[in-house]
Amino acid sequence: MKITTGQRLQSYMKDPLVLFIAVLGILPLFSSHHFYLQMLTLVFLFAFFSEAWNIISGFGKQFSLGHVAFFGVGAYITGILYSDYGISPWIGLVLSGAFGVLLALLIGFATFRLRAFFFTLSTIACAEALRVLVTYWRLGSSGLGTTIPAVNGLENLTFSHEICYTYIAYILLLVVVFVTYRITKSRIGYYLLATGGDEEAAKSLGVNTYRIKLAVFAISGFFTAIGGGFYCMYMRYIEPSMVFAVDFSVQFAVFAIVGGLGTIAGPILGSVILIPLSTFFRSWIGGLFTPIGFLIYGIILVIIILFLPGGLMKGISIVKDKIVQKINNPQE
């Protein structure tokens, strides 16, 4: 029984997730207001990062709290190659992805045979180490921060209109969602879930959990590094304390956890809700928000882990079940 592409497309169309993502794709067309588009770019971009984080940390339950290492490496490789050596950001993005994979393999190689928290610890250590290393390295040349020169053109990944960035971010999100979806439907995906569920049991069934974790972490690192490169071209300014900030690692995790760990829709949902909320607060309360915002993120993390470990997606499915039950037994 072979499934044709047409049938596959049809089955995709029935999925509420596809509808949700399609609706997101039309949103940029409603207004050309710069502020609105900028917010959408961030929503898509952070949904993308959170989704990439979610592959290893949500499905595989290997918590990385130093994903910013990949992000920073991507941003610096793309940014420096372009600003100092004039190498096209497209090549920079490819190299970023490659370095993301290398970094993931290095960390994974050292930690994936050990207890899970060694992995978390080395991701944090790696991010911090890279931050100080890059700070040290950049001190000599053009000072701490690097401004990316703006020469419009597709080959420079530089555009005059915000909507181009918005749609590139959207396409990045589509790619990572599609890849995640294909993984979850494959043998690797099932093995990854099993590894996250109970590693010993998975091994006893012939799953080489070490290899699965390495492969998936490499994929996650690859996407995050590429996203970092794009972020650098979008922001046009990079600085070690910015692109290696712990804050980013937390945001990737918070969006996925709030939305629903280990679900495809979760990270998108989390970012769709939290990015506009924080943008709104920032413009409303002003600069004061930044600390309060992260304070609130911290509290949200603790509360969700204690009281709703499945995040909003779990909440939605509970409500859905209740409604279905009500419809089936109206007298109760």
Partner: peptide, 10 residues
Amino acid sequence: IIATFGLSFV
């Protein structure tokens, strides 16, 4: 890990 990391942020 996540809860104490959240606490750290707080």
